[in-house]
Design a protein around this nucleic acid. Structure first.
Lengths: 209, 209
DNA sequence: GTCTATAGCAAGATAGAC
DNA sequence: GTCTATCTTGCTATAGAC
């Protein structure tokens, strides 16, 4: 057997990218943690690399710049929270039940699931790259696509005529994402919180069938 | 109720500090602007000083450190938004009217009034000073005192029995503060937004007298 | 009060050995 | 792939002249 083919049974990542010994996941985990704890600007590549068990210079083998690292964290964060919400919605029934399932899943990932989602929620408003806005323009569509799911869920609710579905969606997302600032583990669980919010909003419903 | 009795204390400048030729306000304005646009960590003392028309070293005559500058911006921001809300609430009538007035004032300052309030809302979650948490511990009570006003307004609402006033307050504040991320001038005004939110929530009321 | 000058340091990123 | 070593740049903060 040709020696070049010895280590072949790998998964076909990108055609030419990472073959083996890929420590990119550890790097992403560390980056997400520091971005959440200190913010993008204050986190240092040295600390991130150290937390992943390597030296600062080595991580440029995986990511060409700090901004690309942030972008990768965002993509992974959106992917995780989006998957969790889709799965939860599929398992729920009724318009209110599906909305509550989505809210619970969103809060679970945001409040207990951890670092990736927190970065997604908090690290967008400020332009992360200072002068270079290229990264930000690639971040916004990711979030918009995710939030569109909530628009669908709100549109499916049977509401009293005249109720603004647009502002209901914005209020729900605001309530969920703002929970980062007041949530403390040990009190109400994410499921409790979603339940309380939905209980508050149910009176907005038109007569249900 | 005693009018104008609830405003935050006036400038507690040290007795001997600023007599004349005081450029501290310009410095604060510039700092608020850069903290909002770039975040606390990414903003530089050089840029702030330049925007206020002085050199970097000169501002240490007014503020002993960057963290103290952030603290001063917070105090001023809280003072402004708090004054605006108190004034608006005093001029409104009825529990829903007072809540709506408070929401409108809050949004006005946050969305159009500008830099100070944005910094107050956005620059708290992450510890601004890195290792030194002294500044943060002085920031939190300021916000808590302000948010307590909304607790009073929500407690005064005539709600259907069983409705959670705590989660209603958190939902309202979340909806308001999250508007920073989606608000674009030229569309609905802050007053429109507050109206829409209150219209959504009014069906939660118990039979009004 | 504001300046110039700079100390002292940490950051992102690169080069090349292994 | 990971290392060491380093380049370059920018930062906060200080010292002392004026």
């Amino acid at each position: 057997m040709p020696e070049a083919a010895r280590k072949l049974p790998e998964r076909p990542d990108t055609p030419e990218a990472p073959r083996r010994d890929n420590r990119r996941p550890q790097l992403l985990d560390a980056a997400a943690r520091f971005f959440r704890e200190q913010g993008y600007a204050a986190a240092s590549m040295r600390d991130i690399a150290a937390a992943a068990g390597m030296k600062a210079g080595s991580m440029y083998y995986y990511f060409p710049s700090k901004a690309d690292l942030l972008l990768a964290v965002h993509e992974e964060g959106i992917r995780r929270i989006s998957d969790a919400v889709v799965e939860a919605v599929d398992a729920a029934e009724g318009p209110w039940g599906r909305l509550q399932a989505a809210m619970t899943a969103h809060l679970n990932v945001l409040l207990d699931g951890g670092d990736y989602a927190c970065v997604v929620i908090r690290e967008l408003p400020t332009d992360p790259t200072g002068e270079e806005g290229a990264v930000r323009t690639r971040l916004v569509p990711l979030r918009d696509a995710y939030e569109a799911r909530f628009a669908d869920l709100v549109d499916a609710l049977p509401l009293a005529p005249g109720a603004s579905r647009r502002y209901l969606r914005l209020m729900v997302l605001g309530a969920l994402n703002w929970s980062q600032t007041w949530y403390r583990s040990g009190g109400d669980t994410p499921a409790d919180i979603a339940q309380s919010f939905v209980d508050l909003l149910r009176p907005l419903a038109a007569a249900e069938t």
